[in-house]
Write a protein that binds this DNA or RNA. Sequence first.
DNA 1: CGCCTTTATAGTCACAGTGACCATTAAGGG
DNA 2: CCCTTAATGGTCACTGTGACTATAAAGGCG
Lengths: 259, 259
Amino acid sequence: MTAVGPRAREGGARGPRGTAPQGYDPHAFEPFAVTVDLAVFTVREGVLHALLIRRGQEPYAGAWALPGGFVLPRESTELAARRELAEETGLPDDLVAGLHLEQLRTYSEPDRDPRMRVVSVAYTALVPDLPEPHGGGDAAHAEWVALGGCGQLAFDHAEILADARERIGAKLEYTCLATSFCPPEFTLGELQQVYETVWGTVLDRPNFRRKVLATPGFVEQVAGASRLTGGRGKPAALHRAGPATALHPPLLRPEGRQT
Amino acid sequence: MTAVGPRAREGGARGPRGTAPQGYDPHAFEPFAVTVDLAVFTVREGVLHALLIRRGQEPYAGAWALPGGFVLPRESTELAARRELAEETGLPDDLVAGLHLEQLRTYSEPDRDPRMRVVSVAYTALVPDLPEPHGGGDAAHAEWVALGGCGQLAFDHAEILADARERIGAKLEYTCLATSFCPPEFTLGELQQVYETVWGTVLDRPNFRRKVLATPGFVEQVAGASRLTGGRGKPAALHRAGPATALHPPLLRPEGRQT
DNA sequence: CGCCTTTATAGTCACAGTGACCATTAAGGG
DNA sequence: CCCTTAATGGTCACTGTGACTATAAAGGCG
């Protein structure tokens, strides 16, 4: 048994799982604020963009920040993330409602917010390229910002964004998540560009095709439909996302290929 | 813009990132308790065990629960996890200090603790098979419990434990983490048993050998050392963990092999 | 002692998946 | 009509892996 913080359970803030039989006072200990932060990505013209909000006040006034906010007393963090996304960004309601939100991780460094103790649960989401987000409301000052072109981010949001990007890249390897970046109907070339953009690599087109089509349930061809890509060339067949969610075997990044 | 909770930022609890210029009162909103929970695993006699604590009081008195506790005002969650692990379990100090703690995810359902709002950040760790943990202190009533043999767990800890196990299984596929389950020097047979136990499958021994030895930096042979396994048979060469952390290409579970 | 069992270690072989290519098809533009 | 462009279709060699066989080195036992 170590002596690290041996009295932690014996102060005024007797915890829910403490060993003492008496009750406890929820207001007796210093409060933690619990927030959510959202790293929402899209692929736009071959560049990965994140949905960011320009801060209007100190600290970090003028800097970009991730959308997010406080978790309400009766909300789960995922619900809070969805609510904040709808409130703070102009993303269409139906898109927000059906969005796949993935919990990234929780950031809890004591001084990550200079004003008070804030523990933040970060979520990641992928959306197809859309018209500008700030559709309606007053608070909708969110914009798509190209990664790398966003200067210094507020708080530890640069770290969150970097972690989110890494996670996305890894997820593309072994899940069908890439289709989330695409509109309902897309060409295989567009799907390939998602991979190339997120990974920052170039893929061989025939091999990519072969791999995607060989994975059952990844994409389904839309019968008879085709579309010209870039104005010239043979029209590409249109596909939609299939029912599969996992990729077996995985589609590994070229970098991950060292032997 | 949706109407979901549009007044969330305009109540008495003005948040750190709210748009209004005035300050805010940290005590004005209902407090959240932030805790950590630990899912610590070991492999013992071919069975996966978790380090659990028998609850002495309501709710869930008498049930097993994950070790864990409150995050202190100036602690990160990872530090809190390490401190709680040292306090609540009898694990040796040096082991706790050097342990690789991985953040699993955060559990935030409003009613996951019937007494108050508790948001809990779960961590996972792997340790080699050790003598019984409750070495010293008073609060050290932790025990290794075989998975499946622990009845109903307190709170949502069964869900956390299941998530942790799934994460561990996935991590074995593409990281060198399995050596964390082994003592400093181990045989390849012991390493293989780690995989078999966590995955619940049987692996072909020569193929497993080939794969592990072909991955540079996964294990290093201890020159000249060998040990008998189980009393009979040819003594096995001893190995120790190498400097590598990732497995390229991954060592996939037999189930993940569908094509 | 020789022979069994047991466990580790070495090697073989066929096949699936993939990277690197090359070829063909179908569109628009001069 | 021929160029370019992009999608699509196919080949080929190599790597990694699953299944399997063979050998080596220990203890147990008659």
